[in-house]
Amino acid sequence: MLKTFKNWILIGFASLILVACQQQGGGNSKKSKTLENTQKAGFVKCGVSQGLPGFSNADTAGNWSGIDVDVCRAVAAAVLGDADKVKYTPLSAKERFTALIAGEIDILSRNTTWTLSRDADIGLTFVGVNFYDGQGFMVRKNSGINSVNDFQSGISACTNTGTTTELNMRDFFNSKNISYEPIAFEKADEVVAAYDAGRCDTYTTDKSGLAAQRTKMSSPDDHKVLPETISKEPLGPVVRQGDAVWEDIVRWSLNVMIEAEEYGVNSSNASSLKDSENPQIKRLVGSEGELGSAFGLDNEWSLRIIEQVGNYGEIYEKHIASTGIMPDRGPNELWTKGGILYVAPAR
């Protein structure tokens, strides 16, 4: 009898512990849990691609660089004071959202297209756009195809699984009444290898991706990107839903880089502009206002971003333009210079 009683007490305790665990797991505080955890860990957990030159690519020593990488570096500079304190997790298109939702990473900066269903349906929040892109096609130069209108039924097209590309491709070929054979690989490298070997006649993905992957091919000059753009692909960083403060930190880290370019603040002149005449510049370099306190950060967070990472123009030049991927900024030019980069003011 006593034994049974003891056992019941044990079960009672076990259930209490379980309930307590749930309470903790389900708890929702007003402070940013992600920010706290990041500061405690000492690094920003950043999800990147498995290798896309210009966006997120690792060199032989394992150092990541690219404009997507720089978003994470900017956040690390803002919240930890050091842009290098980032832990990168390379993810396939298929894995990326699960990794973010499961908390394996805190920022997904992986040339990810902002769409309604991704933003609203699966517990994610897109914080902005760091590259305006569109889907295009690559073919061999000697193929005799000069425009998407030259495609004929029976064409085979290679692309990545789990991307908007797969959906756009279908919309496009259907509208042209062309039957096609889709071949979808998980890794970009596999897609490129298949296209290179002649398994498929055309390779389709975001135009920036095509330009970047072309540099990886055995003979880049044998291939060309067709002039047409068949979709809108606003690429930007993503965070989990439910942590508004963290969301704001990432959003404004990106915005500050774009606004810094607008006001001519760059990595070399930022600290000397502390006594500028222009109050907007002073806000950007942290000598006026208390902007950082809104996130629980100090006032020099934006100065650190500009000094350690640079403004948008600098990072574009460094990763995209000078590498020959897309020398022309096109829509990714400031709104004052004929592009569509227009961000809310940091004030």
């Binding site: 298109a93 959202f97 269903s117 991704r118 789990g162 797969e166």
Partner: peptide, 10 residues
Amino acid sequence: GTALMQTGRA
């Protein structure tokens, strides 16, 4: 793979 990605219903 693809269906999971498009719907997010892991």
